[in-house]
Each structure stands twice: as structure tokens, then as C-alpha cells.
Design a protein around this nucleic acid. Structure first.
Lengths: 354, 354
DNA sequence: ACAAAGAGTGTGTTCGCACACACTTTTCTT
DNA sequence: AAGAAAAGTGTGTGCGAACACACTCTTTGT
């Protein structure tokens, strides 16, 4: 019961010898306040370590926040569904609690659409933007416009370094590659022969190219650092994934004809496609298969152990945090952590969630 | 701006043709309400899917919640520090937001103390209890008292099945064991010889015994299921950890004299002790070393790769969620999920957090 | 028949903050 | 010097829910 633990703006006003209205003006940087008074109030706020009561704030300011969401288009079960689920979850949760958060969704499947949709958001009454950057050039252009139009934005999944974003939420793809390399190294180190490793870049949307490449770089770096090139031979395969399983099958078939790898690393989220192929060709011994992201299809393949390990970067949480960070920033002008790095999770059949 | 999205008790009152006071009485089950009115109100609440505004609630009800925390005693850097950090973090966060959460901490290092401290909490003005159960017998006794005295409680880390707890927060230790087994299996499968595995139970506090045993069971089950007994030979070692590294060293020294294992699984959180020993004896080839929990010391050993993998069960988050669940339950009478299972994380040098 | 007890209901204040508004005092204009 | 503009400040209302209180209308006992 007894709660004079929290200090209120009223307390500050009393100590500063002014009214709560003035304190309010200082806190929100609005209206005019005499300089000495402002300083006094700010000093007292610091001294008393004033923390605004979030509940009272939300209750009193019945503003509606409109978020603009700009992400690659996706089909059900694909990677981008996960961040979207996180975004929706966060919005629901905040709305239930009395906030008024709205979203305007935009998707893209090529750089032009990306730029186009992004520009639309500027004119609209959108308070903050959450986006995944497509190609570098377009992203830079877009971000510049955001900045000039004073639209705060948060990047998720892929970063554009040196950008004036509120925050980047995601993970260093190089680190992902390193982790996969460590796994493959450890899992194959007792194989006597020279180890044959495939690295498959399976993607269609050009936007993913960067992070896939970065993963590959991390992957290769691991082996280079440990000077393991003698024991391993690598083959990088860029598959232009056009949509059908058949195309994948064909290519895998051809490749298998040239030899059976000990391990396959699929740098994107479509490792299940490779798993399907492998199911058909049944190479013996079955190569170790590692990929990324907990999509439904990938999870199924881990369950039947055609995929051995999945790495994931808390895709869903990325979306959740993006919304949360944006709300905090917009409604309380709170400073947001510039980089919010996700954990890298390693999943296998035995520790799948659920 | 335009927000008639949320419905308020006032809206319900209007539709039901009564005052907000009456609605309030229905919602909180207090005071007298005519049966037909109560039913009408309840119906409307359902129909309109009324969700109370959390902010208004917290703001209006300036109650102080006192939580009783009953956990094993620990030194800095040990496992139980992690859940405690989570608990503190949650309390801080909620207090910052206008709640008034207090905690009363109790620790134990033997079953008697456990029971004793637990009983103390009943008499005190404690609104809810978060505890880790010690031995089975004492836990059952204590939990019965809680129940009879109408003290809600949440179990973390270890479960007592069939207990009338608000929630259990943790992970099935059998699953942990399975996961470690999978890792060790995969990591050693290409070793030609018969594989020699040590399972070390290193603990002093009897309360941990159960989860350690369960992990061992899960571990063994994996190999049994896959009928791998032919390829593997296991040696279970119960080390009565008395505190000094020396004792551990001695025992490890003796064991190594009898042969070099291919892999070592330490079922508790003290794998760093084994790592230290291994550093001294330098068995060649270095056995694979796997243990549990992201304690500082374990993290150091993963960094220098004397420990190869750590499994963890989101220890910190367990504490956080326990507090959060308790608050939700106490202040809003919200129903809490009976079992909140944590993710099993696999960590190695390349994907350590931070 | 009248008071007391009980059942059922409505009103008003409060929580801490946001924000609109009104107000006073000072400083410019011409 | 008078009026306008700017600078600076305080008050009041409302957000949605909790809770105390006061009130009306029955029912019961004597």
C-alpha cells in the first residue's frame, strides 16, 4: 500500500517551485519555459531519478500510432512469415493494453517495388517505419528520404551500416556462417577422408543475396582461420531457385552424379527443398544437411532428420522487438539501443520448440 | 486519433442498462448484484470481447504486491544467479512502469531450511510465492501448506507433477539429456573405435539430484532407442563435489589413468570444473566436453574451447517469466499457462551471446 | 406499523499524466 | 504611449478503472 516510492511530476513541480504544466513543458520540450526554470526542473528530474508512470502516460495520451511495415513478399510457411507474426503479436498485445497501434503493410519482390512502396509511406500519415532493406542502392536512397522527411525507421534482419536508423534488429550474418562452419567442422572431423562440402545459395529474391553471401564468407573464414583447407574441399553452388521442386531436383541430381558430399550447407531458408531432393536420390552415406530458419517446412525436415541442424536468428522476436522499440521511441521519446543483436539458435530434432 | 475501438466498462454499463459500479462488481465478484443483471453483464462482456485497459487498472489500483522468493543459495557466478537476475529485472521493469512490486528473498541449502523458510512465507503478508522445489518429500509438504493457506505459487526449473501451482516454468530435463545425446552421437559417429563416454554427476546440493538424474535418463534413452549400445560404452561417475578444484582434479586424474574417454557429459552446471581438470591433464586426443548452463565460468571455458557445447534452458528468462506470470495472475486474475516450457539452447564458441 | 437489516444500485473521487486553454508579464512596434 | 506580439506560467478536464460511500427499495422482526 504505502507508496511514496514513485515520484510524480507533481513532486517535481513542488521542488522546483513551479506548476506541473511547466514541468510537462520541460519534459516534452514544448511551449516556452524560462531558461533558469527549465534547468532547475531538469536538475531535479535527474536528482530524483524521475521515471514517468507508463500507465498514466498511455492512458492520458490517446494517440494512435500508425506504423508502416515494408517487407519482402512471401508465401505462407516462408521465412518472412515469422517476423510478420512477431509484428502482429506485438501490435495485438499493445492494443489489448490500451495502446492504439495501427499498421500499414507494404511488400515488395523487386527493388523497384521496394523503392516505390517506401516512397508512398513518406507522404502518408505514418509515424514510424519498420523495414527490411532490399538492394543497397535503393535502400540508401529510401533511407535518405526517410531521414529528410523526419520519419523514424527501424531496420530488421539486414543492416545498412552507418544509416541513421533508430535501431537495427537482427544478427551479423558472418557470425551465422561461422557457427555453421563450427558445426560442420566438428561433425565431420573424424571422417578419415578429405571432406567434400557443398555450399548452396538457393534464392530468387535478390534482396537476400547480401546476407547469403555474408554467411558464406563467415563460413569460409572459419575454415581459413583454422587452416583446414587441406582436409576440406568446398564447392559453392548458386541455384537460381525458380519455384518448382523439379528444377532443384534436376540440379541436385547432376551434382550428385559428380560425387557425394559429406556435408551440405544451404545458406538461405530453403534447405527443405534440398532435403526433398536428397530424399529422392538417397545418396549413401547421407550427407550432413544444415540450413537456416524455423519455417514450418524446415521444421518438418528436421523432425524426420533429413535436415540435421537449423540455425535461426529469432526471426519472430525480431518483428516483435521492432514494434516494441518503435512504440517506445515514438510515445516516450525513449532512446533505443542502436543495435539489437539476436541470439543465434542451433536447433536439431531433440530441441525443437513445441 | 479516432478510437472507439476499445470498449470500456462504461460501454458495457450502457448496453446492460446499469451503472459502471455494477459492472465493476460483476467483474470483480464483489458486493451484491441481482442475478439477471450479472448474467446480462457477463454476456455483454463476452459478446463485446471486453479487454480491461491494463494501464487504467494499474493506475487506479495502487496496491503493493509482495512476492516471496525461495531458491537454493548460491555464490556469484553459479547457476542460480541467472534466474535471480531475471527476477530482479522483471521487478525493476514493472516498478518502473508504475507497479509496486516488492520481494522477500529466502534461500536454502538443505531440505530443512527449505521447509523452514517456506513455512515462514505463509504467515507473512506475502501475496505470491516463486520457488524451486528441493527434495520431493519436503516440497510436497510445503506445497500442501501453500495450498491450504491460499497462497498462489509458481515453480521454476524443476516441476513437481500434479501440484496445484499456478504454473511451472522450466524444461523437461529428459529432453535436455536427449539433446546432449544427439550432439554427442553426431559428433562422435565417425570415430572408428568403440566410443567411450563418461557421464559425470557433479553436485553437492541434494535438490539438484532429481534433474541431474532425469537428464542422465534422457541421455541414456537416446542411445537405447537407437540401439547404439554396441558402439558405445558408458561410465557414470557420481562426484560428490565438496568445493575445491583439487578434489575434482584427483578424481579425474584417477579416472584418466584407466583410459581416455571420447566424450564427457557433465549433467550439472559445473562443467567448468571438469574443464579445469582437463586443462591440467591434457588427455590426447582431447575428449569432447558438454555441459549445462551459461554461467560466467562456463562461458569462459567455451570461449577457450575447453568446453565444446553448453545446453541451457533460458535460466534468466525463467525468473523473468515467473515474476511476470505472478503479477498477471495476482492483479488481473488472469489465467496463467500451466506449463511454460523454455527453449533448449545449444551454445558453442561461435554463437555465444554478446 | 415502524425500525432494522439486507439486497441492489449509482455517484464521486482518485491514480499520474497529456494537452488545451486562459491568463499574466515582458518586449516590440510604430 | 498604446496596442500587438511574444514569453512565460497555471488551471482544468479527461483517459479507464478501482473503490469508498451513499442511496433506494425490499424483507424481516417485534
Amino acid at each position: 500500500m504505502a507508496n511514496r516510492t514513485h515520484i510524480r511530476i507533481k513532486d517535481i513541480a513542488e521542488k522546483a517551485g513551479c506548476s506541473i504544466g511547466t514541468v510537462d513543458r520541460v519534459i516534452h520540450n514544448r511551449g516556452k519555459v524560462a531558461e533558469p526554470v527549465r534547468e532547475r526542473v531538469l536538475r531535479i528530474i535527474k536528482e530524483l531519478d524521475y521515471k514517468p508512470n507508463v500507465n498514466a502516460r498511455v492512458l492520458a495520451s490517446r494517440q494512435t500510432l500508425t506504423l508502416g511495415i515494408l517487407l519482402p513478399s512471401y508465401k505462407k510457411g516462408e521465412y518472412w512469415e515469422l517476423p510478420c507474426l512477431g509484428i502482429s503479436e506485438a501490435m495485438e498485445r499493445y492494443n489489448e493494453q490500451g495502446y492504439n497501434i495501427e499498421a500499414r503493410w507494404f511488400t515488395y519482390n523487386n527493388p523497384e517495388k521496394f523503392l516505390q512502396a517506401g516512397m508512398k509511406m513518406i507522404s502518408n500519415e505514418i509515424d514510424g517505419i519498420i523495414l527490411n532493406p532490399a538492394t543497397y542502392k535503393e535502400s540508401v536512397r529510401l533511407v535518405r528520404s526517410f531521414f529528410q522527411n523526419n520519419k523514424p525507421f527501424i531496420l530488421i534482419d539486414s543492416d545498412i551500416h552507418g544509416t541513421p536508423s533508430l535501431s537495427f534488429i537482427g544478427k551479423d550474418p558472418v557470425q551465422s556462417g561461422l557457427t555453421v562452419a563450427k558445426l560442420i567442422h566438428q561433425l565431420t572431423r573424424h571422417i578419415a577422408a578429405n571432406k567434400n562440402i557443398w555450399v548452396i545459395n538457393l534464392s530468387k529474391s535478390p534482396n537476400q543475396t547480401y546476407s547469403l553471401l555474408a554467411r558464406e564468407i563467415g563460413f569460409m573464414n572459419y575454415f581459413a582461420d583454422k587452416q583446414l583447407q587441406v582436409d576440406y574441399s568446398f564447392q559453392t553452388i548458386d541455384m537460381d531457385y525458380s519455384g518448382t521442386q523439379k528444377v532443384v531436383d534436376e540440379q541436385i541430381g547432376k551434382l550428385l552424379a559428380t560425387g557425394n558430399p559429406h556435408a551440405i550447407y544451404v545458406t538461405g531458408s530453403r534447405v527443405h527443398k534440398i532435403a526433398e531432393s536428397l530424399k529422392k536420390f538417397k545418396p549413401d552415406p547421407k550427407p550432413l544437411l544444415i540450413g537456416h530458419d524455423l519455417t514450418h517446412r524446415n521444421i518438418e525436415r528436421v523432425k524426420d532428420e533429413t535436415v540435421d541442424f537449423l540455425i535461426e536468428e529469432e526471426a519472430r522476436r525480431q518483428g516483435y522487438l521492432a514494434v516494441e522499440s518503435m512504440i517506445r521511441s515514438l510515445t516516450y521519446k525513449e532512446a533505443i539501443q542502436k543495435k539489437q543483436m539476436m541470439n543465434l539458435m542451433i536447433y536439431t530434432r531433440e530441441n525443437l520448440p513445441l
